[in-house]
């Protein structure tokens, strides 16, 4: 079989990144893990305790960056989905798949860390607060996305259908946000991105920004690792068939 004539519709049969396969640790992942660990150490021992909320506020350094990464991940899903329907390149579908999975993991972290924080602050595990409810629906939408992927045998159909859902899901988010916001809200207002000067003390702000940076790095590392898995699986499937 002559691979050079293969159009981009077909999964890559010859590995375009053969050099990255196998052996050696994933250095990007190691670096990201170290960065996250360092940030958490700083958050727990070297950042002052917030006067009103007490130690529970430290969960914030996990909760907020996880929520950011979840939104980033689903944004990437929407973007690669649009590009996939346009360019029909398998690699875009692999990125979408990987980003959705990583995004669901971080959404789960948000959903667990939110109640842990909320219990001492609000006095209840779960509140139907606007942003927490939105996160819950994000989790439902992208779990549905992953189930849909698992339920389709045909590679091309799976890519097309999940791209459609990836785009519609992103369109849905503002509507759910608006609905639950109108329904009720008692979530603390954003503290960093206010037009006036940030109201967080300097030390805490530094830690928060570091946590955003290290979690973003962790997202990129996980996305890259998951993407490699996806492309290698495609290659194996292609080899099986020929």
């Amino acid at each position: 079989m002559n691979d050079s004539t293969l159009h981009s519709h077909a999964p890559p049969i010859a590995a375009p990144h053969a050099g990255t396969r196998g052996g050696g640790p994933d250095w990007l992942f190691v670096a990201a893990a170290l960065a996250v660990a360092g940030t958490l150490v700083r958050a727990i021992w070297f950042t002052p305790i917030e006067a009103i909320q007490g130690p529970a506020q430290k969960i914030f350094y996990v909760h907020a960056p996880s929520a950011w990464v979840a939104f980033l991940a689903f944004g990437i899903v929407a973007l690669t989905s649009i590009l996939y329907l346009w360019l029909k390149d398998w690699r875009l579908d692999c990125v979408a798949e990987s980003s959705a999975e990583v995004g669901v993991v971080f959404t789960t972290v948000v959903l667990i860390s939110g109640p842990l924080w909320g219990k001492p602050i609000w006095g209840t595990w779960w509140t139907w607060d606007a942003r927490l409810t939105l996160t819950l629906f994000l989790w439902f939408i992208y779990m549905g996305y992953l189930v849909l992927r698992g339920a389709i045998e045909d590679r091309a159909m799976r890519a097309r259908y999940s791209a459609v859902l990836g785009i519609l899901g992103a369109l849905l988010i503002p509507f759910i946000h608006l609905s639950v916001y109108l329904f009720r809200t008692l979530h603390p207002m954003p503290i960093v991105l206010k037009p006036s000067a940030p109201s967080l003390p300097g030390d805490m702000l530094t830690t928060l920004l570091l946590s955003f940076a290290s979690f973003t790095l962790l997202y990129i590392a996980l996305l890259r690792a998951r993407y490699r898995l996806a492309t290698e699986r495609d290659e194996l499937e292609a080899e099986d068939r020929t």
Partner: peptide, 30 residues
């Protein structure tokens, strides 16, 4: 749209509500 998609999957009956219900939130609530 989801009916057109679900019919081609292995979980047809289950997948349609699973995919559509989150989309019905901004319908039911308002």
């Amino acid at each position: 749209l989801f009916s057109a998609m679900a019919v081609n999957t292995r979980l047809a009956e289950l997948l349609l509500p699973m995919l559509s219900l989150p989309f019905f939130v901004p319908i039911i609530m308002p």
